[in-house]
C-alpha cells in the first residue's frame, strides 16, 4: 500500500479577509510534505464541508480572526459529522480567546492555535492526531 500523504483543507469561513496566517500555515504544511488545499476567502460552512468531502481530506484547518468563531466552527464540525466525516481532524487558528476553547472543543474542534504558535507545533499536532 502506498503512503498516502496527509491532505489538509485550509478554510476561511465567513467574511474575514485576513489570510496572512492561513497562507503561512499552507506553506509550512507543504514544506512538511502534506498536500494542502486552500479554499480562498468568504466560504460558507457548507462550501467548506463540500470541499472537505470531495477532496477526502484528513484535516480541516480553519482560520478565523473576525470573532465569529463560536458561530461558524461548530457548524462546520456538525456538518462534517452529518456527512459521516467525523474522522476528519478539525483544528482552528486565529484570534480566539481562551475562554472559548472549552466550548469549541465540546463542539468538535480538536486543536486551537492562537497568535505566536510556531508552525512546527501545528505540523506536529496534525501528524500526531490525524486518523488515516
Amino acid at each position: 500500500m502506498g503512503d498516502k500523504k496527509i491532505r489538509v483543507l485550509i478554510a476561511k469561513p465567513g467574511l474575514d479577509g485576513h489570510d496572512r496566517g492561513a497562507k503561512i500555515i499552507a506553506r509550512s504544511l507543504r514544506d512538511a510534505g502534506m498536500e494542502v488545499i486552500y479554499t480562498g476567502l468568504r466560504r460558507t460552512p457548507q462550501q467548506i464541508v463540500n470541499a472537505a468531502l470531495q477532496e477526502d481530506v484528513d484535516v480541516v484547518a480553519i482560520s478565523i480572526l473576525s470573532g465569529a468563531h463560536n458561530h461558524l466552527l461548530p457548524k462546520i464540525a456538525s456538518l462534517l459529522k452529518e456527512n459521516g466525516a467525523d474522522n476528519i481532524l478539525v483544528t482552528a487558528g486565529g484570534v480566539i480567546p481562551e475562554k472559548d476553547f472549552a466550548f469549541l472543543e465540546e463542539n468538535g474542534i480538536r486543536g486551537i492555535f492562537t497568535p505566536g504558535t510556531p508552525t512546527n507545533q501545528v505540523v506536529d499536532f496534525i501528524r500526531a492526531n490525524v486518523k488515516q
Binding site: G14, L15, D16, R42, T44, S66, G67, A68, H71
Partner: peptide
C-alpha cells in the same frame, strides 16, 4: 465586516459577524 462588504445585518452571510 457585513457593513464593509455591503451586506445588511439580516443577510445569511452576515450571521455571527
Amino acid at each position: 465586516l457585513p457593513t464593509q462588504i455591503g451586506y445588511d445585518s439580516d443577510d445569511p452571510i452576515a450571521e455571527g459577524e
